[in-house]
């Protein structure tokens, strides 16, 4: 082997004929790039199975995909406000039935915050008063609590609305113009307010986002 090296021949420690190269044949070049994304195939794929069963499953699959979108479990992302409100959008909304999860089966922390606070003492009280309560009894109590909570929530949101309206009125007091436009303006104000809030939230909550943005800017600058 030492002799091989000395004479400048390819220093293979094995017989390259064993892997299919004849003596003196040029070895293929080293490949330095990844294989192509869509390589040519030597063999075409066989056609898919077809039949009554297959067709039915296919129809089922497509139908299921549509049904799933109408289920209450399909959580839609809150849409960002568009510049132009499309009239047709109002009619595109799909009707969904409401889904009330069975809170007995879920961790308490998953209930909305306000609900938890109220539920705590009340459920305890319920337990203290009726020690030998059966399953159905507690279920009733829980249901009642849920109802109360819902009512509570509704009130809460009402209050919020009132607050908002109040603030708007304050702002309106300054520039009382035409009463006809008041409604429009109200809407407009609301949007603006929310957007402002959104911006502030994202700015202060997460430092990371900001950092990423600045990185991007720097890249652009160097480009």
């Amino acid at each position: 082997m030492a002799g091989n090296k000395g004479r400048g021949r390819a220093a293979y420690t094995f017989n390259i004929e064993a892997v299919g190269f004849s003596r003196g044949e040029k070895l293929p070049d080293v490949v330095l790039k990844p294989p192509p994304l869509f390589p040519d195939t030597d063999y075409k794929p066989v056609p898919l199975k077809t039949g009554e069963g297959e067709d039915y499953v296919l129809a089922l699959k497509q139908e299921l995909r549509e049904t799933v979108k109408r289920m209450p479990y399909f959580v839609e992302t809150p849409e960002e406000k568009q510049d132009i409100e499309r009239y047709s959008k109002r009619y595109m909304k799909v009707y969904k039935e409401e889904w009330i999860p069975d809170w007995r089966r879920l961790p308490r922390e998953l209930m909305a915050r306000k609900k938890c606070k109220k539920a705590g003492p009340k459920s305890k009280k319920a337990k203290d008063t009726g020690k030998g309560t059966s399953l159905t009894n507690t279920a009733d109590v829980l249901k009642k609590i849920e109802e109360l909570e819902k009512r509570g929530d509704g009130e809460k949101s009402d209050e919020e609305n009132e607050e908002k309206e109040g603030s708007k009125e304050k702002s309106k007091e300054g520039d009382e113009e035409e009463d006809d436009n008041a409604a429009e303006q109200e809407e407009y104000d609301e949007e603006e307010q929310e957007e402002e809030n959104d911006y502030i939230n994202s700015y202060f909550e997460d430092g990371d986002d900001f950092g990423a943005d600045s990185d991007d800017n720097m890249d652009e600058a160097t480009y």
């Binding site: 007995r104 089966r105 879920l106 961790p107 308490r108 922390e109 705590g120 459920s123 305890k124 337990k127 020690k131 030998g132 309560t133 059966s134 399953l135 507690t138």
Partner: peptide
């Protein structure tokens, strides 16, 4: 299943039901 009510258990209810 969520087990039947455990009244003997004093203190605050557990954070999550054990199924």
């Amino acid at each position: 299943l969520v087990p039947a009510t455990e009244n003997s258990d004093p203190g605050p209810p557990p954070p999550a039901p054990t199924l």
